[in-house]
Amino acid sequence: MKKQIALTVNGVKRELLVNPQDLLLNVLREQLGLTGAKYGCGIGECGSCTVLLDGEPILSCMTLAVAVNGSEVTTIEGLLGSDGSLHPIQESFLEHGAVQCGFCTPGMILMAKNLLDKNPHPSEEEIREHIRGNLCRCTGYTQIVQAIKEVSLTRKA
């Protein structure tokens, strides 16, 4: 039987009907058309389905949509400014060539946002530690780490 849930997704209130077995990732992608979060491994190893739930990173492919009723979800689409401008972290990823195939990028950027929100000036070790659950198979970790570091350096302390 379908259940009604209410979510705030990227600042917009949404009321949705979901089955108990529906995963948050599929609801975001198929019901809301937010295809930024990706299906990768499906078992919690790759981090490409990462979204922020009340500001903290979770794996949306291992989260029941029904269980996040009442919460606030941020996907990569939610980082755009109201005028359509890119978030500074997104800009930095572009500048550093930290994107190749792009599949891991939404997860990487949301992890970077989560880290920088709590710790505006992380060390390289702290950056690597924080994104250890996000796999990049184009071997771009160096640029990704540099991109995150650059944002932390240019931000006002």
């Binding site: 981090g47 990173p57 979770i58 989560n114």
Partner: peptide, 9 residues
């Protein structure tokens, strides 16, 4: 424990 995401969940 595993990753930051799993530590949150």
């Amino acid at each position: 424990v595993s990753t930051a995401q799993i530590q949150t969940m």
